[in-house]
């Protein structure tokens, strides 16, 4: 059970690809790697979750943390290629009303 994180970035856009399981064990690692990316103003971070096979509230907490930090710095967080399962998690918690989530990849690599 593990999580893998790959990222690349240009001037102000960051693209992150997360794969694996996000739970109580792996969420701290994810937070540790992703939260520093939110530093600086007007950052746009796109996180692709296509290959996340499992996620629970610990994962939601990581993305809420990023979202709050980016919003504070006038940046943006986009979560893309969510599976139906992941989308459901954001929907039932009400986070889909607040955060930018998408089930397709329109923003990736642009």
């Amino acid at each position: 059970m593990k999580v893998n994180i790959e990222q690349h970035q240009n001037e102000k856009d960051v693209f992150v690809h997360v794969s694996g399981e996000i739970d109580a064990y792996t969420a701290p690692k994810l937070r540790e790697e992703l939260l520093p990316l939110t530093e600086g103003n007007n950052k746009v971070i796109t996180v692709n979750l296509k290959e996340v096979s499992y996620m629970d509230s610990t994962g939601l907490g990581v993305f809420v943390g990023m979202f709050k930090q980016l919003t504070k710095n006038e940046g943006e967080l986009k979560l893309v290629e969510l599976s139906d399962r992941l989308k459901r998690l954001f929907t039932i918690t009400g986070l889909s009303h607040i955060m930018n989530i998408s089930d397709n990849a329109e923003d990736v690599g642009r």
């Binding site: 979202f67 709050k68 918690t93």
Partner: peptide, 25 residues
């Protein structure tokens, strides 16, 4: 506990606390 609604402000979002809500749902 959650869920969050459209009127929830960014400051009100918590990084924890959704677990019990998910169990019940």
């Amino acid at each position: 506990l959650g869920p969050y609604t459209e009127s929830t402000t960014v400051d009100q979002l918590s990084e924890g606390g959704l677990g019990l809500y998910l169990i019940e749902t």
